[in-house]
């Protein structure tokens, strides 16, 4: 693969990873869904349940301005469907009183909202400096090999999605990973990760 002239001052960039040649796709998006950089478009998703819509109404009432309920509303949608698809975005936009494009722009800013289905278990491994110093790279390699999946990818059976993330505030208990909502810390030696992953259904 040849290098390319980046827009930033004519530096020749030698990509190690084909994703990088796309340059314009921020890593947060590139590593987001199973589809990688092609996956910027959200999935369709389903209409939100009556319970979720009622929850969003309740959230709107909490704040002095309706729009403040946007992030919480997106959490409600993601909890219900596992990701925030186009249809929930539109429904939330209508409730909050902003355009669907505005909602999409907010969704894309924050790394934790998924825009298409991912694995049943989302494994996020911190590889920032403090974790790196305690062996996070070996942890990433180990999980990659064990699951047979690359960063940003989902296993064929749809069980695991693996991503690398920046500091999760667990530096004193490094290395660590986040499995769905939960932190798992002090993962040294690596047999602890095996125990953890093997215990999952």
């Amino acid at each position: 693969m040849s290098g390319r002239k980046a827009g930033t001052g004519g530096l020749t960039v030698i990509p190690e990873n084909p994703r990088e040649i796309r340059g314009m796709v921020p890593e947060s998006i590139a590593l987001r869904g199973p589809a990688g950089p092609e996956g910027i478009e959200p999935d369709e998703g389903k209409s939100l349940s009556a319970a979720s819509l009622a929850e969003i109404d309740r959230l709107i009432d909490i704040y002095p301005e309706r729009r403040s309920a946007l992030l919480p509303a997106l959490w409600v949608a993601q909890r219900e469907q596992g990701f925030v698809g186009r249809r929930p975005m539109e429904e939330i936009a209508a409730k909050i009183g902003v355009s669907p494009a505005f909602v999409a722009s907010v969704v894309s800013f924050y790394t934790m909202y998924q825009i298409r289905p991912i694995g049943k278990y989302l494994i996020q491994i911190c590889t920032s400096l403090a974790c790196y110093l305690r062996g996070s790279d070996a942890l990433v390699d180990h999980v990659r090999k064990k699951l047979g999946v690359d960063l940003g990818g989902t296993t064929r059976d749809g069980r695991f999605t693996l991503v690398r993330v920046e500091c999760l505030g667990s530096c004193g208990t490094a290395p660590m990973l986040q499995l769905n909502d939960d932190y798992h810390e002090n993962l040294s030696p690596l047999s602890k990760v095996d125990e953890l992953l093997d215990s999952l259904e």
């Binding site: 920032s128 920046e166 500091c167 505030g169 530096c171």
Partner: peptide, 11 residues
């Protein structure tokens, strides 16, 4: 919103 790499006191 404690997110500075290396920081975990507020948590």
């Amino acid at each position: 919103d404690e997110s500075e790499p290396g920081t975990f006191k507020d948590r």
